[in-house]
Amino acid sequence: MSVESLEKIDTKVFERPTTLIDTEMHYCPGCGHGVAHRLIAEVIDELGIVEDTIGVAPVGCSVFAYNYIGVDFSQAAHGRASAVATGIKRVLPEKYVFSYQGDGDLAAIGTGETIHTCNRGENVLIIFINNGIYGMTGGQMAPTTLPSMKSTTSPFGRDTKSMGFPLKITELVAQLPGTYYVTRQSVHKPLNVRRAKKAIQKGFEYQKLNKGTCFIEIVSNCNSGWKMSPVESNKWMDEHMLAYYPLGDIKLPNDTEA
């Protein structure tokens, strides 16, 4: 076979999803946000719902999600993404609406909106990136920072006596009758990436059923905030974060219907 004919064979086995905008991301090398963005874009492409999807970006590292995921997007005030998603979904009930929020946004300043959006059973998908730290503002303590974990505002480690305990908000929202599908995933290993994608796909698909809120936590790393290399941070995440935030489904549709 000549070189020319070889070139004609389509050898592409991996490509950028159409919905993932071809641009430089501001995320630190090694950060999980890029993978999570890609999975969302892949799912939107595969479900063919780019025209029917509206995203809500939070305040935090993923504030610029609208520069990377090529669907219509609304950027929300800190903590209010699920309220903004509620507003959009209520006037456009036939569309797919998702919010993408970090731990500070969703589980600290926006706890009220998160709980009540889930309690009303808004038919939206909430994607919650939990990396146990405030990344964008430079490594401060998050509601999900682990006990004894150091941050710039818990420099001697999180003392649960004075700083409280890491909030397992995902387990909390799973208790609410308004949630339909609640799961905790990660994107630090190939197998986990595949599982997270499956979860995101379900989260979008279930919106059509109008059965309630889908809530996907993705435990992620923040190598910059944690002051580790990407590899170290993933190892640390495996050993510490996942011990406190175990992966897996917390509430499945069958549980709701049972």
Partner: peptide
């Protein structure tokens, strides 16, 4: 707080 942010989303 939630109400005005719902307004923000829907007005968009």
């Amino acid at each position: 707080v939630a109400a005005i942010n719902m307004v923000y989303g829907a007005a968009g």
